[in-house]
């Protein structure tokens, strides 16, 4: 039997979580938490329903800084036209997560805190330099998003702590990003490999870049060596391929029902150049705004 506690303030939420450490888990959209309970992977005594805590569902854009509340629904991200222009990778990741029904319930914070290695949102937020804002009994703290993940299904949050929001960089111009993934089917599937890239340019020359991976390591990976391969170039194919090779070398995939380790590593080396290419085209203005990338970035010879 699971009881539900509905706090009305953040302070109530974290103090209850602290008091019932190990026995209470926060619930947002419930698309992961309820399945975990039903399958016996999680057996809490208390669900702490965050839906009445103010401001956790807010989306704010202040200059270049995007603040996404932890309880923002994936579907809301997917359908936000301003985010589509300025945080394209985040919107593209939202677009392929689960199904419409799942996205309508699932939240950004839930997708991050469930810490599934194949989750869609982490790599897209990582390439937008996301910072995780955390509240606990002892106060608030902020960490780079990469430091939130401790392993499959594990975060670095304390038992009394909640992820409250994410601060991400969302430049208005000379920047582009992209999220691609490989799956067995196109919908209702987990990524075999997820790849996100962001690029900033001066003219056509790359001044800054990020590459992040999902489903190929115990935690989402930000691969600096990959982005370093293209900074200072105007993204010739060889530089993009070198970034792909470095990303493939940095990951540590496993073999499971969604692919073999060797295959996943190869797909990383394929998707990273594609993601960088699309991000660069967006940054330089060569990509028609509002046109989504093919889910796996495959060129049909017309779109790139």
């Amino acid at each position: 039997m699971v009881d539900v506690y509905v706090p009305e303030t953040l302070e109530e939420a974290v103090s209850f979580l602290g008091l019932h450490a190990g026995a209470a888990i926060p619930i947002a959209g419930g698309t992961d938490a309820l399945i975990d309970i039903r399958t016996g992977r999680s057996m809490p005594e208390w669900l702490v329903d965050l839906s009445s805590v103010p401001r956790l569902g807010d989306v704010e854009l202040d200059g270049e800084v995007l603040r996404l509340g932890a309880l923002v629904r994936i579907r809301a991200v997917e359908l936000d036209p301003e985010l589509g222009r300025r945080a394209t990778a985040i919107v593209e990741a939202a677009r392929v997560l689960g199904s419409v029904q799942v996205r309508t319930m699932a939240t950004v914070g839930g997708n991050l805190c469930h810490a599934t290695p194949s989750a869609e949102m982490p790599p897209s937020l990582l390439v937008h330099d996301a910072v995780a804002e955390i509240a606990g009994v002892g106060g608030r703290r902020s960490i780079p998003l990469a430091e939130l993940f401790a392993g499959p299904g594990r975060t670095t949050l304390g038992p009394d702590e909640l992820l409250t929001s994410l601060l991400a960089r969302a430049p208005a111009s000379s920047a582009g990003s992209c999220y691609l993934r490989q799956t067995v089917r196109w919908s209702m599937d987990l990524a075999g490999v997820g790849v996100s890239a962001s690029v900033e340019v001066d003219g056509t020359v790359v001044t800054d870049a990020r590459v992040a991976l999902a489903a190929v390591a115990p935690v989402p990976l930000l691969v600096e060596a990959a982005s370093e391969a293209i900074v200072g170039t105007n993204l010739p194919p060889e530089a993009a391929r070198e970034a792909g090779r470095r990303a493939a070398a940095a990951c540590s995939p496993i073999s499971d029902a969604r692919g073999t380790a060797g295959y996943r590593r190869e797909v990383v080396s394929v998707l990273v150049p594609r993601a960088l290419r699309i991000a660069w085209l967006r940054a330089t203005g060569a990509w028609t705004q509002g046109v989504p990338a093919p889910v796996n970035g495959m060129s049909t010879g017309e779109d790139l």
Binding site: R185, S187, D189
Partner: peptide, 11 residues
Amino acid sequence: FHDYGMPTAVD
């Protein structure tokens, strides 16, 4: 049916 890979409407 999630892991088994039955096609969805979009597949």
